[in-house]
Every structure is written in structure tokens, then in C-alpha cells.
Design a protein around this nucleic acid. Sequence first.
DNA 1: TTGTATGCGTTATCAA
DNA 2: TTGATAACGCATACAA
Lengths: 340, 340
Amino acid sequence: MPTTLKDISKQSGYSVTTVSRALTGYDDVSSSTRAHILKIADQLGYQPNHAARQLQGQRTMTLGLIMPERMPTYEDDFFSVLLKGITYEAANNGYDVLTSAAHPNQSELDTYKRFVEGKRVDGMIVARTHRNDSRIAYLQSSNMPFIVHGRLTSEEQSNFHYIDVDSQLGLYLVTKHLIELGHEKIGLILPQADLAFTDYRWRGYLNALDDHQLVYRPDYCTHGNLTYQSGLDEADYLLTNYPELTAIIATNDWMALGAIARAEQHGRIVGKDFAIAGYDDIPAASQAHPSLTTVHQPIYDVGVQLTKQLISIIATTPTTYHQTLLKPHLVVRESSGDSR
Amino acid sequence: MPTTLKDISKQSGYSVTTVSRALTGYDDVSSSTRAHILKIADQLGYQPNHAARQLQGQRTMTLGLIMPERMPTYEDDFFSVLLKGITYEAANNGYDVLTSAAHPNQSELDTYKRFVEGKRVDGMIVARTHRNDSRIAYLQSSNMPFIVHGRLTSEEQSNFHYIDVDSQLGLYLVTKHLIELGHEKIGLILPQADLAFTDYRWRGYLNALDDHQLVYRPDYCTHGNLTYQSGLDEADYLLTNYPELTAIIATNDWMALGAIARAEQHGRIVGKDFAIAGYDDIPAASQAHPSLTTVHQPIYDVGVQLTKQLISIIATTPTTYHQTLLKPHLVVRESSGDSR
DNA sequence: TTGTATGCGTTATCAA
DNA sequence: TTGATAACGCATACAA
């Protein structure tokens, strides 16, 4: 059985109260008794019982992250990398991280409720927002501190703390890059329509076309699901129906890699007579052949930033929303080809 | 303030005890009162207070995973992918996952103690074992259920539940593959010497040489640290000092990718006049150019298996160690070249 | 079938 | 500077 305050109390002769105060660093304990108690606690290998602390309203020193209901695609490591950044930064600040996914017969939202109303965490991190995001609505109605990676769509109000990478700018940059290389007919493979960033990426593409007096062709835009397979499928669709295309932008790297593979099967030589670009700059992007032109998203670092912010929010309960928009940068590699 | 049993008690007129029993599914509650209570609980959105449950000795329904003290290299996503598998499988069984890393001024082992003695979890998962692993020794001395991914070195006793991928077999397979292609002078880039699997991988290499009557040259073996950079460095060292080498095996894919890059800088054409193989089969391996011959490790699935096992161990406290050795398989791609 | 009393380990309040 | 007591929310032993 683990050591409790009572054990230390007995050993030391002091009351449980005094022991508690000595251990938690109160200043109304004589330094000699504190030293004495500290020594015994150390000998006995005392570890505070976390549940007991929580129970009388203490902080949990725990942050929560819930993985999406349907597992993101097998190859999508967005959440795991984010979680890595979160875990290490949390630990640097004395926090632990509780993670879960929907339990059987429960919704994702139920999991949020379990964490929040079960008082299991001091704050929540929400990632990959979608249109009309019920998780955010719920958290707003609670008084649990939370921070979001991403915003709601541009038509919705994002009245909460967030850190986002400016997807609209990101897609503007790639699109502009391709246009400047001479491309005028550029296909676009978007993610699922209900993801909030889909909206921003689409707008970035649109703006770039606009700014260069190119006509927007809605039929050049399709929706994939962020997987390699959907990159194959959507590229196939675009190349079959619109052979006039000279370039395709996929809104994540896995779809872009799929698109490259399929384009080559269609007889296009990517990086020479056809251009493809991705988004994210995952490790495989630089290894791919041709290497992938893409937009860099520092996911690990975003995890770190989110954590830093959330912890400061927990500490200070700011009255104004902390909203950060990070600027992504274009990484030009072989797949977009030379100037044509 | 979240709803408590007391609130439901007041609303329903029943005692807290009865409410508690109705909600946790005892059978000594009349079905009419149960229905009544359930309804009110639902209306009030009752969520059990986790801390309170834990406090009187209940299960936490939480599993623990602690990330290594020094962050695994930036690009090493082993833990994050493992954690993804663990989290989803845990959730499937009604469990949550608590993760952390060493807090400031604390050791990794302190973190284990916090989790175990602070009674924060029902079981622990340990990964990436090393020689003389103090975390395992500690857990063995506790009575916290735990399962390990990996074993101790072959000279040590692995008296605990584990699931390992047979690294020795894995390295045997790659080495044999290269030998059968005609290679006789094969460099080996190992991980840090204190990692337990280093031992097994080295033995696999050794056995394959032995079985084919090739002499083992210790100086053909170097140690990297699992990063791309160390792949560059160690390959450089090997190629500079032993130009007679016709192949290099790196014991993970990132080092192998580094080795490919450096070998090409040394004028070797990998896949033609020089062979390189890796280990892990990370996504980038199939995208690399040349694509990487490697050994497949199903990390996500291992996470799933570990979780399944651990949960069953928690439930049944088996008296015999559950030890599984998974067979890895060779994935032959371009980097090992054709028969020579 | 239901209710009362008690305790889990800790901290906060109040008194000494 | 220290200690007794109550309280956090829940589940259990025991009584009714």
C-alpha cells in the first residue's frame, strides 16, 4: 500500500494537517519540523494520491485531448504528432495529458462531457475543427478552459482561444507558385467539405486565381478524404475528365503522393510536363520521387504552442480571446517542375 | 457545477445510496425506481466524478504510457504511432490513456512512481526497453499490472508480460537477403548500445553471416542514434574507411534514408552497385528513391495488441507470463538492388 | 428493496 | 506554529 499522509503523521508525531502543509510548501511550518517531515516522506517514498487531491477541488494538473470518433485514416499521423508536442510541453510545465476516443456506444461529445464534467482535466485541446462544431459549442457552454487548433469556417464566429495555421495563405502561396510557373488550368483536391480548413484552403486557391485574372472552374475541384487512396481516385477523376489540366494541388501530402502515382500512370511526367503540390510537408514529402512541393505545417510545434497557451489561459483566465494565426511557408521541390 | 448523486437524490426522493446502486446497475433496485432515477440522471446530464470513484479504491479505467525522458528524436514517431494504437484500442474497451514525460527536475522513474503510487492508472505500458531497465525493475517490485513492448537483452531475464517483434529474425532476414544477392562485405549501423533491441538486431546479423560462412568483422558495425543525420554520419564513416563494402544495413529506416543520401554522394548508385536496407517500414520508406528495402514493423497494431493484453491481465491477474514474439517480414524494394 | 453510517486521502477552515 | 474537524463525491457494510 502506498504511503499516505497518515503514515507520515504517525512516524513523525505531527498531525496530518501539519504534514500536509509541510509537504505542500506552506510557510507557516517551522523549518525544523518541515525538514523532519520531508525526510520521513522521502524515506517512505511518499507520492500524493491524485484522486484525493482532485476530490477537494484541487487542480488536476492534467490536460485533455480527444481523438476523433472515427479513427483518422490509418496513415494520418496528425493527431499523434500533435499529441507528442502536447505531451512534452505539458510535462515541461508539470502537466500530464489524458487522451481518449469515444467509448463503445458513446459519442465523441460524450467523451468531452466525461472529461469536463467528470472533472478529469484542467483544460482541453480541440483539434481539426469542423463546420458547426458541437464540441466547441459544448466547451463554450461549460466553463472549462480550452484552446482550439483551427478556427470555424469563415462564415462562423470563432469566439474562443485558438491557434491556426493560415490555410488560406498556404493555398494562396502554392496556387500562386504554380500560376507563376505558367499553369492556368489547375485541379484542386480538397478534404471533406465539413472540415473547417477546407473552406480556407478553397478560398486561398480562389483568391490566387482571382488575383491573376484566371477563371475559377468549380468542376476542377473535387473532394478526397486525406488518404493516399483518395489521392489516387480523385487524380484519376480529374485527369480522365479534364485532360487539359497541367497541374493538381492536393490539400494534403498523402493525397498529393497518390496523385503523383496516378498522374504517372496517366502518362504524365510529374515535375516535367505536369505539376503536383501537396500540403503539410510530412517526412515522406521530401523523400518522394519526385520530391513534393508542399506547404510546411509545423504540427509538433503547434502542439507545443497550444499547450503553452492553454496553460497560461488556465492560470490567468484572460478576458479576451487569444487568437494566433501562424504563417505557413511554401516548400518548393521537384514535383512542381521548372518554369514552363 | 456538475450534477452529483446528491442532486439526483434530492430530485428523486431516493437516498444517495439507492441512486448510486441504480446507476451502477445493481440488481437490488426495483426496476421502477431505477427507471425513475435513470431518467432524472439523464435529464440532469449526470457524469460520475472520477476522482471520487478512484478514491474509494475503484478502478481508474485508465492506462498509462510514459514517453522517454529525452524526447526521442524529432522525426522518430514510434511513440506517437504506438500511442495512437493504444488510445483507440483502450477506448474500444472503455479505457482512457494517461501520458506524460518527466517533469522538470524529476526523473523518468519518478514519473512511473507518480502514476503507480499516485494510483492514477490500472496498468502501465512500457516501450523501448533498455539494458538493465530500471523502469521494469520498479514495476516488478510494485504490484501494478504492466506490459512491455520489447524484452530485455538476451543475457537478462525477461520475467514479465511482453509483446516483441523478433528483431533478431528481422535482421537475419535482411542480412540473408543481401547475402543471397551476392554481398559479402556488409556494413551495419546499429542503434545506441543500451537499447535492448540493439542486442537482438546485432545477433540476427551475426547469425546470418555465420550461416553463410562469412566472417564477422566487428569494425563493419557502428552505432547511430536512429536519426537521419546519424544515418548520414555513420554511412560516411563506413564508406570512407571501408570502401570495399557493397552494402549497408541500417537498423531503422531514417538512418537508412540518411545512408542512401550519403552513399550517393560517395558516388555509389544505390539499388545498382550498392545496396542499402532499413528497418521499420515507415511510410517514407515506400516513397523514397530508390524505395527502401526494409523489415516491416506493425507499430500501430502492436499498440493495439499491447492494450488488449494489458486489459486482460488487469482483469485476470494471470500467474504465468504472457509473452508474444511476432514475426516481422522482409519488404524487398529497390534499394537492395537486383541480384548481382 | 431501501436507507444510514462510514471511509477513501487530501486540503481548507477554524480554533488553540 | 500546530491541530481538530469538516468536506469533496462516491460506494460499501450493515441495518431496517
